[in-house]
């Protein structure tokens, strides 16, 4: 049976990987970040179309 310390350490590894990914994304050129926003908008539209939320025409 895993103890709490092991679970906590494993969770911290996961959280650190997420932080690292955010750091990498933050370091991208601004123009690329805007392109990623458009990708996020397309992904959201694929799940549910909302007329109030249009995908940007870049």
């Amino acid at each position: 049976m895993r103890n709490k310390d092991t679970a906590s350490a494993e969770a911290e590894i996961v959280f650190e990987k997420k932080r690292e990914r955010r750091r990498l994304l933050a370091g991208l050129p601004f123009e690329r970040k805007i392109e990623i926003i458009v990708e996020l908008q397309k992904a959201a539209a694929a799940i549910r179309k909302d007329p109030r939320h249009m995908v940007w025409p870049l």
């Binding site: 994304l25 933050a26 601004f30 990623i36 926003i37 996020l40 908008q41 940007w56």
Partner: peptide
């Protein structure tokens, strides 16, 4: 807003 935040940190979904 979201575009200003995106300038500094990871891209955030905004419209």
């Amino acid at each position: 807003g979201g575009i200003a935040a995106t300038y500094y940190i990871e891209p955030v979904l905004t419209y």
